[in-house]
Every structure is written in C-alpha cells, then in structure tokens.
C-alpha cells in the first residue's frame, strides 16, 4: 500500500509542478492545489498506515502499536482547512488579475520584474 501511495504522491507532485510551469494563470492554481494535496498525502503515508484500528482506547488495550496514530490525521485536517482557504483566495486573486491585466498569460505579467 505504501508503494502505491508513494507513486501517487510522486505523480501528484510531478503533475502539480508541470501545471505550475504552464503560462496560464488558471493552471497555476490547479498546480498549487495539486502540490498541497501531494503534501497532505505525504504526511498521511509517511506517518505509517494502520488499517482498521481506530485510535480509541477501550478497556485492556494499552500498547501504542495496536492503534492508528491520530496525530498525522489531525495535522492533515488542519492543513486541508488552511489549504482550502488559501486556494479560495488564490482563485479570487487570479480572477482579479485577469480582469485588471486583461490576460491570463503569466508571461505577460513581468512589468514589475527586474
């Protein structure tokens, strides 16, 4: 399972970076969100996959290895919420940029570069 997820994460990173390198601003957003998903999935996988053992300690169960680690899931949940907000902002920003600059071609947005 870890191997499959590792490949998925790699593919997500690759796709995200590829999309970010496209000149279109909309693809940039898609790339950013793919990158965020890849990072979340990475945390999920690297902390260890434990199947069907929820982190609820019932009577008699004391060893830590018998249950899933709830911590990475809490981290991911927070990261997803933050990522959602940031991506929502990015979408609005892109919309304003396209309105004001008049194009979604990122190659034409370099008047402020030095």
């Amino acid at each position: 399972m870890e191997t499959v997820l590792a490949l998925v994460i790699g593919a997500l990173y690759a796709a995200g970076l590829f999309m970010m390198l496209r000149p279109s601003a909309v693809r940039l957003i898609i790339g950013i969100s793919l990158l965020g998903h890849a990072a979340n999935l990475l945390i999920f996988t690297i902390a260890g996959l434990t199947r069907a053992r929820p982190p609820l300690i019932t009577g008699g169960l004391t060893t830590a290895s018998a249950i899933a680690d709830p911590m990475p899931q809490a981290l991911i949940l927070t990261a997803i919420v933050i990522g959602f907000a940031v991506q929502a902002f990015a979408v609005v920003l892109i919309q304003r940029v396209v309105q004001i600059v008049g194009t979604d071609d990122l190659d034409q947005m370099k008047t402020t570069d030095s």
Binding site: A25, L28, F89, V97, I100, V101, M109, T111
Partner: peptide, 14 residues
C-alpha cells in the same frame, strides 16, 4: 488592485 500590485501579488502568493 493596481496593475503592478496584481502582478507582484501573483508571484508573491505563488
């Protein structure tokens, strides 16, 4: 929402 700001912001945010 000035044009320069928008161009700066998109790089900064990304």
């Amino acid at each position: 929402g000035e044009r320069a700001q928008m161009e700066g912001a998109i790089k900064y945010v990304t």
